[in-house]
Design a protein around this nucleic acid. Structure first.
Length: 916
RNA sequence: GCGGACGUGGCGGAACCGGUAGACGCAACGGACUUAAAAUCCGUUGGGCGAAAGCCCGUGUGGGUUCGAGUCCCACCGUCCGCACCA
């Protein structure tokens, strides 16, 4: 019997699928549609094991749904614009386009080797003008509908690289690449008006439209959108106070707690509030204070540690409800970016206000009385009270509950004409301008007379100009210093004008690619009929790291495209699954350099030769001179079984020889290493395994199987060599079982069981079908795999079973493994003599009659402890079960000398006898 | 600080609506095959006592509800994730 050889078998079936066009999707027909999508990859050059896990999950769903009779769409593309290509150009002198397309070519080859059921005829790359021309058209339509607009906004400007940085690219106030201190600049930027949709984006999270999304993602989006209802109002200046010119009207604040207005003891504005800026012009001390505030980083610890600080301004405001006068501060904890950049401070009801009040000796009048507290004795000490209660010390609000008082206060302020109830969102409009070359050009022309003018539709696409690869080593945007491209005539008045040189944020590219997949070759962004047929995506799968931005942008884009008449849905992804990462132990030397896992050798404590042991000890002693901690940690480490002791590695240069266990050591070959924490695989820590190497050794099926076994899909999975080997063993066992039953399906008639068909094996078969089906439906791939193992174990032990029952089992087995190990499944199907391709075969159906059992085994408890088992008829009545249980010898022994008080019989579950 | 998730053998993890805790895999150990090794196959494997039957203990800690708790409730400890001076 030949050994299973994935190196020959896998490419063979990949080619057959391609020839058959097995996965090319056509809209229409009688079958219900099913759109499966995994988040498309960035073409970095290599697929990594995380991709394997992501796409293996999608492929299980796609193949399963196809077998269940759905018309499945399962496409793939490339998120191909972005900064890494420009960085590569800088380092290697290769043009970003060449670099990107080379990577796409390489990764496509690797992906194809995984045997995914992908419709490659729909492949797209976002850097392809055939893709981004439609994106430009969408932009123009959004602009015409005022969904896109231009405004001045503050940006992080890197003065060395001459570019705008995203917040994540600013580290400790410095540019991530140049290290130069980042400046704040006002720049005209393009925005998508996503805040207009904030309410609907929020509402859909809870009204059932996103019922198929994980709770944590919905929660993250809810927090990100951050809706708060409150009151926006003015505090008038107190009599005798002289506010600066232009601010006579008062200070506008926002609050969610207008019920606590009587607890106000100060007003505070942000350091970059216009009022503060105005006063700073003539107040050097204030200038210094503001500069100080801006120095404090925005990092977590900085905020945590930063003390509340304020600078008192030389005037006071009044209070809307009484004749109090409130001091006004510039305070470091007030943010300009939220609300109006000004607050009223209520120390009894807000922890920050309380800390501030304590520091500056301000009053802390309590205004909310917790239920059950005595108003005469209730005081605020170190903690503000933010809970529910009754309002007191508050004039006309006294006696109201918090909710009622909020409304009453808003009504009163509106009556007085000082403000109005208002809803605020944390969400900001989406700034999409990037000062980069390798992105989708924004189709706008700037004219001195006409302002920003849309590029006429007939002139689309605005193609990226050819630039020399050397351009990327020069700071700034190559588009900005490309006169032939940049200088054009105004399409409106014909005067000399300039192209917009910013390109779009790459999140724009990924905000609608799933729509384009529905009609990837149309002359417009999407054909509505096709979009309506395929959308929404029925199952979207990807990393939780995209829980907020990508998913939010895609949700908004879908609404915007609907507004432009391209689609009918407003939510793009009906079901979302966020899968966990692949993690791996890290390894490092005494110098702290990281080492590839494949270069690490493990030595058993008691197997290592004397010579090697001696060498290692000497080496450690030598290292201990400078790295005493290293030696200490090294000697402490063992693996989880406590067996391994010595570790070393072969250097990356390949020059050092691989040492073998017990080989005599002639000279030092390698270095001792430390095993570090198990972390997300990353290039920088070198804790990566190459899917290509795995596929070389074990084949794609083994890699796919292992990635889905053991850990639940939403959780992180640790890559281990032993794990793939286990998967490899399974493949061998299945192949054994199948190849010894060659042609078993040729004479097999599933409709006519033979008279002697083995009941036990049949039951195992149908239980496996029912279980695996249920598990795949519920994204429990690890359990589905466990059931297949169980089934296979039964099958392998069923020597006595007749040919018919075995054929039924094998027929089911080949189809049950098909979503997980598709190549092996095809090979088995063919060997067994199945009809056509297994990827076209229908999913096996479980026969409910076989799942029902005549007799069942029930556990019998005495006082809650299991003492015996009893076999009874499945339909036995309670009294019969009770009597049978009571007559058991083991039960009698345990209730000897006691009185039976009660007997609990849960049909099909358990018997419990209570006695004392 | 706020919000959320989680805590089960040596390890990854099963255990449906409260009903036999540890499915399945890995590792380990014993055995078969082999000149030998690898591969493969068979068996054992939560801890303790015991020759065995069996008994006791056991799901982070302490309490509670229940005939019965890994599962529900309360308090605490710990880990992870998201947001973070959002008024």
């Amino acid at each position: 019997m030949p050994r299973y050889n994935p190196k020959e078998i896998e490419p063979k079936w990949q080619e057959r699928w391609r020839m058959a066009g097995a996965f090319e999707a056509q809209p229409g027909g009688d079958k219900p549609k099913y759109y499966v999508l995994e988040m498309f990859p960035y073409p970095s050059g290599h697929i990594h094991i995380g991709h394997v896990r992501n796409y293996a999950m999608g492929d299980v769903v796609a193949r399963y749904k196809k077998a269940r009779g759905f018309n499945v769409l399962h496409p793939m593309g490339w998120d191909a614009f972005g900064l890494p290509a420009e960085n590569a150009a800088m380092q290697t002198g290769k043009h970003p386009r060449d670099w990107t397309y080379d990577n796409i070519g390489a990764m496509k080859e690797q992906l194809k080797k995984m045997g995914l059921s992908i419709d490659w005829s729909r492949e797209l790359a976002t850097c392809d003008p055939q893709y981004y021309r439609h994106q430009q058209r969408l932009f123009l339509e959004f602009w015409a509908k005022d969904l896109a607009y231009r405004k001045e906004s503050d940006v992080n400007w890197d003065p060395v690289d001459q570019t705008v940085l995203a917040n994540e690219q600013v580290i400790d106030g410095k540019g991530w690449r140049s290290g130069a201190p980042v400046e704040r600049r006002k720049l005209s930027q393009w925005f998508f008006r996503i805040t207009d949709a904030a309410d609907d984006l929020l509402a859909a999270l809870d009204d059932g439209r996103l019922a198929g999304w994980p709770d944590n993602v919905r929660l993250m989006q809810r927090n990100w959108i951050g809706k708060s209802k409150g009151l926006q109002m003015k505090f008038r200046f107190a009599e005798g106070t002289k506010p600066p010119t232009g601010f006579e009207d008062g200070i506008e604040i926002f609050t969610t707690r207008p019920d606590t207005l009587f607890g106000a003891s100060f007003i505070a504005v942000a350091p970059d509030h216009p009022l503060a800026s105005k006063l700073a012009e003539t107040d050097a001390e204030l200038r210094a204070f503001i500069a100080d505030c801006q120095k404090i980083g925005t990092s977590e610890e900085a905020i945590e540690k930063a003390e509340k600080q304020g600078y008192q301004l030389p005037f006071e405001t009044g209070h809307p409800f009484d004749d109090r006068r409130l001091p006004v501060y510039v305070a470091n904890f007030v943010l300009m970016g939220y609300g109006t950049g000004a607050i009223f401070g209520c120390p009894s009801g807000d922890q920050r206000d309380l800390e501030f009040a304590r520091k500056y000796g301000l009053a802390v009048p309590p205004v909310v009385l917790p239920t059950g507290e005595d108003p005469a004795t209730f005081v605020i000490e170190d903690e503000a009270y933010v809970g529910p209660g009754t309002i007191f010390n508050s004039g006309f609000l006294n006696g109201l509950a918090v909710d009622e008082a909020i409304q009453a206060a808003i009504n009163k302020i509106e009556e007085m004409g000082l403000g109005e109830g208002k809803t605020l969102f944390r969400l900001r409009d989406w700034g999409l301008s990037r000062q980069r070359y390798w992105g989708c050009p924004i189709p706008a022309i700037h004219c001195d007379k006409c302002g920003a003018v849309p590029v006429p539709a007939k002139d689309l696409p605005v193609l990226l100009p050819e630039v020399d690869a050397r351009e990327f080593s020069i700071p700034g945007n190559p588009l900005d210093r490309h006169p032939e491209w940049k200088n054009v005539d105004c399409p409106k008045c014909g005067a000399a004008a300039r192209r917009e040189t910013d390109t779009m944020d790459t999140f724009v590219d990924s905000a609608w690619y799933f729509v384009r997949f529905a009609a990837p070759h149309e002359e417009k962004p999407v054909e509505k009929d096709k979009a309506d047929y395929w959308l929404p995506v029925d199952q979207y799968i990807g990393g939780v790291e995209h829980a907020i931005l990508h998913l939010l942008y895609a949700r908004w884009f879908t609404r915007a495209m609907k507004a432009c008449g391209y689609l009918s849905v407003d939510e793009p992804f009906a079901d979302l699954f966020t899968q966990g990462m692949v993690i791996h132990a890290t390894y490092r030397t005494h110098l702290g350099t990281w080492v590839l896992p494949e270069n690490v050798k493990f030595f058993y404590k008691d197997q290592v030769s004397e010579a090697r042991r001696k060498w290692l000890v000497d080496e450690l002693d030598r290292l201990a001179d400078d790295h005493s901690r290293f030696k200490e940690e090294y000697l402490k480490q063992t693996d989880s079984t406590g067996q391994y002791y010595f570790y070393d590695y072969v250097s990356d240069d390949g020059k050092t020889r691989v040492s073998e266990i017990n080989s005599p050591v002639v000279e030092p070959l390698s270095n001792p290493i430390l095993i570090g924490p198990i972390e997300k695989m990353s290039k920088s820590k070198k804790n990566v395994v190459s899917p290509e190497r795995i596929a070389e050794t074990y084949g794609a099926d083994a890699a796919r199987w292992f990635m889905l076994s053991d850990s639940p899909p939403e959780r992180d999975v640790e890559w281990t060599d032993a794990g793939v080997e286990g998967a490899w063993r399974l493949i061998g066992r299945i192949w054994d079982a199948v190849s010894s039953a060659k042609g078993a399906l040729e004479t097999f008639d599933p409709e006519r069981p033979t008279a002697d068909a083995d009941e036990d094996l049949r039951r195992a078969t149908h239980e496996a079908i029912a279980g695996v089906t249920d598990d795949i439906e519920n994204f429990r791939f690890n359990k589905a795999i466990a059931r297949i193992y169980e089934f296979l174990n039964t099958l392998r032990k069923s020597d006595g079973a007749d040919g018919w029952a075995r054929a039924e089992a094998l027929s089911a087995l080949a189809r049950l493994i098909a979503p997980f190990t598709p190549h092996l499944a095809e090979e088995c199907w063919e060997t067994l003599g199945g009809n056509g391709l297994v990827c076209d075969a229908p999913w096996p159906a479980a026969d409910p009659a076989l799942l029902a059992k005549d007799t069942i085994v029930l556990p019998v408890q005495v006082n809650g402890k299991r003492r015996a088992e009893i076999e009874v008829a499945a339909n036995a009545d309670k009294a019969a079960v009770e009597n049978a249980a009571l007559s058991l010898e083991a039960v009698q022994r345990h209730i000897a000398g006691m009185t039976v008080r009660k007997t609990v019989v849960v049909p099909g579950r358990i018997v419990n006898i209570v006695a004392n």
